[in-house]
C-alpha cells in the first residue's frame, strides 16, 4: 500500500470534474420534479445532449456552441415528453422510459459519422489571483468553465425556488396542481418550462461527458449516469444543496475508490466498487430526506 501515490490536489480536482455531469442532470430533474412531473428520460436527454454537443462542437470548432447545441437538443427532447405527458396526458413513467430508449437510439443514429473523431479542446480556466492560491487554487479555481457554470446553476436554482415568486408558483404547481390551477396559474405552461430547463441541463451534463470528461463521442457513453442523477434527486430530498452534496459525494468516492485500488490499499475491491453508491445513499438518508412534491407524477387535466 502506498497512499503517498495519491496526490490530494489532483484527487479533489478530479472529484469536481467527476461530479459535474451528475450535478447538471440532477439539478434539471430536481426542478422538473418540484414542478410535479416525473421524467425518467434523463438518460435519454443526456445522451442526446452528448451527441448534439459533440456534433455542433466538431462542426463549428467551438465547445461553447457545442454546449449550446446540447442544451437545445436536450430541451427539445424534453418538450416532446412534455407534449406527450402534459397535453396528450400519457403516462409519465412509461413515456419517460420510452424517452430514454428513444434518446439512446436517436443519438446512435446521429453520431454515426462522429465515432473516433476528436472534438475541440475545452480549455481550463486559470482564474487570476484565486487560481494562484496554494492547494485551494488548483482544486477550485483552475477548472474548466462548465464546473463553475454547474455550480452557478445550482445556486441560481436554489435562490429561484426559495426566494422568488416564480419559484413559489413552480412549487405550488408541483405540490397541488388543482389548487394552483384554481388560483389561475398556468399549470401546463409552468411544467413545460420546467421540463425544457430540465432537458437543457441534462443535455449540458451529457455534453460535459462527450466534450470534457471523456472527451469523444461513443454510443451509449452516458452508461447510466442519468439514472444515478435521478436517484440522487430522490435521496437529496428534492433540495438543491443536498443534491450538490450527493453528487460530490458520489463523484468523490468514485474517484477515491479508483485511487485506492491503484495505490494497492488492502480493502477488497468489491467493497471499494460498491462504496460510491453505499456512501451516497447512507449519508443522504441519514440527513433524512425531504418529502416528495404532492403532485409528483400525477396527470393534470383542467377539467378535474
Amino acid at each position: 500500500m502506498d497512499l503517498s501515490a495519491i496526490n490530494p490536489i489532483l484527487f479533489f480536482a478530479s472529484l469536481m470534474v467527476a461530479a459535474t455531469p451528475i450535478i447538471l442532470a440532477g439539478i434539471g430533474e430536481l426542478v422538473v420534479e418540484r414542478a410535479g412531473v416525473l421524467n425518467l428520460g434523463v438518460e435519454g436527454m443526456m445522451i442526446l445532449g452528448a451527441v448534439c454537443g459533440f456534433i455542433v462542437a466538431v462542426n463549428t470548432g467551438s465547445a461553447w456552441l457545442g454546449f449550446l447545441g446540447a442544451a437545445l437538443g436536450g430541451a427539445l427532447l424534453a418538450l416532446l415528453f412534455g407534449v406527450l405527458t402534459q397535453c396528450l396526458l400519457s403516462n409519465q413513467v412509461a413515456t419517460g422510459l420510452a424517452l430514454t430508449l428513444f434518446g439512446l437510439g436517436l443519438s446512435a443514429l446521429m453520431g454515426q459519422g462522429y465515432i473516433g473523431i476528436k472534438g475541440p479542446v475545452f480549455a481550463d480556466w486559470h482564474i487570476p489571483i484565486l487560481g494562484d492560491i496554494p492547494v485551494l487554487g488548483p482544486i477550485m479555481f483552475q477548472q474548466d468553465p462548465m464546473v463553475y457554470i454547474a455550480l452557478l446553476i445550482v445556486l441560481g436554482t436554489g435562490l429561484f425556488l426559495n426566494r422568488t415568486r416564480a419559484g413559489l408558483i413552480l412549487r405550488a404547481v408541483g405540490e397541488n396542481h388543482d389548487a394552483a390551477h384554481q388560483l389561475g396559474y398556468k399549470v401546463i405552461r409552468v411544467r413545460l418550462m420546467a421540463l425544457a430547463f430540465g432537458g437543457a441541463c441534462a443535455g449540458l451534463g451529457g455534453a460535459y461527458l462527450s466534450l470534457v470528461r471523456v472527451p469523444q463521442w461513443t454510443e451509449g457513453m452516458t452508461a447510466g449516469a442519468g439514472w444515478i442523477a435521478l436517484a440522487i434527486v430522490v435521496f437529496a430530498g428534492w433540495k438543491p444543496w443536498r443534491l450538490l452534496l450527493g453528487a460530490y459525494l458520489f463523484g468523490g468516492v468514485t474517484v477515491l475508490q479508483l485511487n485506492l485500488q491503484a495505490a494497492g490499499v488492502a480493502i477488497p475491491v468489491e467493497y471499494l466498487s460498491m462504496s460510491p453508491y453505499l456512501a451516497t445513499i447512507v449519508v443522504l438518508v441519514i440527513m433524512s430526506a425531504g418529502r416528495a412534491p404532492g403532485s409528483l407524477g400525477r396527470i393534470f387535466h383542467a377539467s378535474h
Binding site: 478530479s14 455531469p21 461527458l209 470528461r213 471523456v214 461513443t218 451509449g220 452508461a223 447510466g224
Partner: peptide, 8 residues
C-alpha cells in the same frame, strides 16, 4: 463499457 469510468 462505461467511457466516463474508463477515462476516470
Amino acid at each position: 463499457f462505461d467511457p466516463a469510468k474508463e477515462a476516470e
